[in-house]
């Protein structure tokens, strides 16, 4: 197990101490490298399922009858939504207290129980 590796950096030791016990084996998920290399998983998945798409043709015979079609829809739709956010944000965003109701913080104060006291 990785726990027993002798070469832990000081930062890692602090992280382990702070984390929930159940999360300790998964701390690597938070590392920069993991987040950077994550892209290969969907890429591989996309390629595999695109190939499979030619093996199992779609049930609905339409314009997008080709094996790749849904991958294309997914990719372009998603990109369109995200890229549209830039102009939309310029157009629609206003300071947070625009309506004069929210003040500094929208969230509630009395209901917060960050677990520092005893747990109910």
């Amino acid at each position: 197990m990785s726990d027993n590796k002798p070469t832990l950096s000081p930062q890692e030791i602090v992280d382990r101490a702070e984390a929930h016990p159940a999360a300790v084996p998964f701390l690597w998920l938070g590392s920069h490298k993991t987040q950077r290399n994550f892209i290969y998983i969907p890429l591989a998945g996309m390629i595999i399922f695109s190939v499979l798409g030619f093996v199992f043709p779609p049930k609905y015979p339409t314009l997008w009858e080709y094996g790749l079609s849904y991958a294309a829809i997914g990719f372009f739709s998603y990109s369109f939504v995200v890229l549209a956010a830039h102009p939309l944000f310029k157009m629609l965003s206003r300071p947070e207290n625009y309506y004069g109701e929210d003040g500094e913080e929208l969230e509630l104060e009395g209901d917060v129980d960050n677990g520092e006291g005893s747990d109910a």
């Binding site: 994550f38 969907p42 890429l43 998945g45 399922f49 997914g74 995200v82």
Partner: peptide, 12 residues
């Protein structure tokens, strides 16, 4: 799965 994978890929 194509749709999902492609979208996740787009995100990444």
């Amino acid at each position: 799965m194509q749709l999902i994978m492609a979208a996740v890929f787009a995100f990444a």
